[in-house]
Write a protein that binds this DNA or RNA. Structure first.
Lengths: 138, 138
DNA sequence: ATGAGTGCAAATAGTTTGCAAGCTG
DNA sequence: CAGCTTGCAAACTATTTGCACTCAT
């Protein structure tokens, strides 16, 4: 089990959440993923019968609240998750056709926060996804 | 009827799309909106019996393909549309609680495109939404 | 006239909820 | 042992599709 997963588990405990086999499996799956995954995708990446799909949805939601995963949105609106700790906040470039992704470290979170504060907004967060056609799909 | 709507109608014609009463109504509704609207919201903003909800979905989709509206995604994944404000690609800051929005002109489209091209990607587009708690909801 | 566009009904996809039973701390 | 978690079924929301009919060009 990677550092990522162990650290996430610590965080869960620290927040009073329980650590079950299902949650471990989901964290493992996310840790092994090279791109953000939807609940369904995370679920299919799990060893057979690890848990119910509904549980995947519920855990991912909890994980997000606990801050161990970051949530994004695909071009079509599906929510996607990826383990955040250690990776830092980042974004993804996704191929519209084949779905392959690249990590993008470019982010203007700070600027956004500044602008938002200018409007008097607090607890600012943002979601950004970049899409295109990858070399092999062009 | 505003310039916005007229210009959009021109564009539709130019792309070989037909101009119906329903489409005019939808364009009007978007023109009067001060923030991006979902298909359902656009539909409810229409004068009674302007058209079917399904038609709203279909038109918005066509409008996006034709380039007369820009599409975004809410934090929860619902798709939203707005008339390209005088062409300026821009983003929105949305209050998580009351839904009010502010326009944000900050955008790093160019940088993104450059990065994406570095990966060999073409036809790059991006979606970004910023969320927070507005002054009155804090 | 002819094919794009529309309405209505019904199907999907993604996600959420209710409730009884199971397991963690 | 209390109550967070899970599984299963069912409900829901947002969106899409099939088909016959209508209307813009």
């Amino acid at each position: 089990m990677g550092d990522m997963v162990m650290h996430s588990i610590e965080t869960l405990r620290a927040k009073g959440l329980r650590v079950t086999e299902q949650r471990r499996a989901i964290l493992e799956a996310l840790a092994n993923a090279d791109s953000p995954k939807s609940a369904e995708e995370t679920f299919s990446a799990l060893p057979a019968d690890s848990c119910d799909l509904v549980t995947a949805y519920r855990c991912l939601e909890q994980f997000e609240k606990a801050g161990v995963v970051e949530r994004g949105v695909r071009e079509n609106g599906t929510k996607v998750y990826c383990l955040g700790h250690g990776h830092g906040h980042h974004h993804h470039l996704t191929c519209r056709k084949c779905g392959s992704t690249e990590r993008i470290d470019l982010c203007m979170g700070d600027e956004l926060e500044k602008v938002a504060e200018g409007f008097g907004y607090t607890e600012v967060s943002h979601v950004m996804e970049v899409f295109g056609l990858c070399p092999s799909c062009t």
